[in-house]
Design a protein around this nucleic acid. Structure first.
Lengths: 336, 336
DNA sequence: CTGAAAGCGCTTACAG
DNA sequence: CTGAAAGCGCTTACAG
């Protein structure tokens, strides 16, 4: 074992400061009654000894760890890194730290999820696209609040902070119709999700209201390479849509890539495209994709706020926070 | 405060199993001597009560937390998410968990780094592009091993696992010259880094050996949007290079984007391009970028292995692990 | 192999 | 405001 420097404890500080250990402890607890004089002496001693309260010892008595388990996004989808930053910083701001819970566990490893609970996280933020049932049940068992970030798993009861996908869908329909689209399609991946359904529902309802007919729904894969084939089929057919609302920017980009590179088509002349997410690539020179931007900053703030509320109070009311989405116009829509 | 269920402790399990609390404890420690009979009884009781050893209590006595602080990548660079997954899973595999240390802290927040040390992480993995001096000093003070992932900060003494940038640079020069390039350039960003220097050095040395002259060095920004202007200037000038070795794929893509979209140039006809990283976009239809692929899987494995070695033994020898890089040929190089 | 007991570094009533 | 003491849930010599 490594020769770890003997850590300095509250008692060491107490000795140097000439006060009791209890007093040292109080100095580091907000709202404790300590005289200014004692406080000074303790701070001085603590600084000299480079003292840090031991969070483990603390949580042993307080029964709260100030640790939040973070189930983080699985794919390398371009915005996830930012999301993680936001979430982590927001937690930090509130005095909490994030412990990573790797989402991908095979059957044999399933038992390692419980391991995370050896650390007694106060709450769990689920930001992964996959939803881990074992994790969910474990949280239920231990009465640990869990909130879902930018996702909703149906059939579970946890709070969530998500973008207003339904309204985005409606706005997409309205916008595309306004710009003269006649044959609209909704291009999406292969994994069903609540957020995707909401978006499709909004899109369909609004379009039906406006034109009397529903959009064509095209299912392919969320993975660029695997989406290509399906897209080729759609573009090659006679009934090619003249407007696509894509459920991710990656899909929109895959669509544009095959349209331009393999079919010699122009956008928005041959068809209009609307994406979703506003990933960095959406603004690249070759794409200039019009898309919906999710307010991840606000999503993170709200999600953390809600989680901490559930952690710190008895109020376990499940709430679904809806954050508006913004249409970012670039070059893949016709002008009005 | 929330009504947290009273957690079940080793004593509860002991009572139910009809053994002492010490025995329960031993059952959950690998290598302790416990009779098979006792072990069975304890497991049964633990299962029934849904018992999880409290890691905080444990680390209070063992003086090790099995927690690794993870300073994670700052940008939304497309491969970082994968890296995080790999690192986190590798740690998990070894019985450790990762606590996030947000890298971006303004002056006022600098004190929040020390806070992370209230959790007594056993080691720190620095995977961020930025290097936080406060963190580094804190680690030194507390004698906490730190290893750098895919980066090296000069003037500090910590181990690191990085790609063999020097050899990649040499191979880039050799390859480009082989393919007939005469006017070679090295296109890079604005933030100097050890890894970038190594790559440039390899590139320069090999090129000088081969042709007698050094490459032209072009500095712009690592951010797509901000790189555009500099690239335009280079492409507009008379002395346009006929081959670019780019220090990131993002730069290579920005270069190709302006070349095609604004100058009507073709690649590799008008010039050849070699990237670095092999981000997902490199294989997109519109790019087909030839590039160097870093072996992040191996980097993660080695980095974790090294960190845990330093955590668990007295051997604090600083090592710099060099992982080979692979050239992925796609469409931006001429044929031999 | 196993139990009783001390101790890890804190917080928190309880007295004063 | 402050100190002495109990207690949080474990691990680990120490005896047996």
């Amino acid at each position: 074992m490594s020769v770890k420097k003997q850590p300095v404890t509250a008692s060491d500080v107490a000795k140097l400061a000439g006060v009791s250990q209890s007093t040292v402890s109080r100095v580091f607890i907000d709202g404790s009654s300590v005289s200014a004089a004692a406080r000074e002496k303790v701070f001085a001693a603590a600084k000299e000894l480079n003292y840090r309260p031991n969070a483990f010892a603390r949580s042993l008595t307080t029964n709260e760890s100030k640790l939040i388990g973070l189930v983080f996004p699985d794919s390398d989808y371009p915005i996830h890194m930012e999301t993680l930053q936001l979430l982590s910083k927001e937690l930090q701001k509130n005095g909490y730290s994030a412990v990573l819970i790797p989402w991908e566990l095979d059957a044999q490893q399933q038992h390692s999820i419980p391991n995370i609970f050896q650390y007694r996280v106060d709450g769990v933020m689920a930001a992964s696209a996959q939803f881990n049932t074992a994790l969910y049940e474990e949280c239920q068992d231990f009465n640990i609040p869990i909130v879902q970030f930018a996702r909703v798993e149906e059939g579970t009861s946890c709070s969530s902070a998500i973008s207003d996908n339904y309204s985005a869908g409606k706005l997409a329909a309205r916008t595309l119709v306004e710009r003269g689209a006649k044959k609209l399609a909704y291009l999406t991946g292969d994994i069903p999700s609540y957020t995707n359904n909401e978006r499709l529902e909004g899109f369909t309802e609004e379009l039906t209201d406006l034109t009397g007919s529903a959009p064509r729904e095209i299912n392919t894969s969320y993975v660029y390479e695997q989406a290509l084939e399906g897209i080729r089929a759609v573009l090659a057919a006679d009934d090619r849509p003249d407007a696509f609302f894509c459920s991710t920017d990656i899909l929109a980009i895959a669509l544009m890539d095959v349209a331009k590179n393999e079919f010699g088509l122009s956008i928005p002349e041959d068809f209009q495209v609307l994406g979703f997410d506003d990933i960095p690539q959406a603004s690249w020179l070759g794409y200039q994709l019009s898309t919906f931007k999710q307010d991840f900053n606000r999503l993170a703030k709200e999600a953390v706020k809600q989680l901490l509320k559930q952690v710190q109070t008895d109020d376990q009311t499940m709430v679904k926070l809806m954050i508006p989405v913004e249409l970012v116009e670039r070059g893949t829509l016709r002008s009005k």
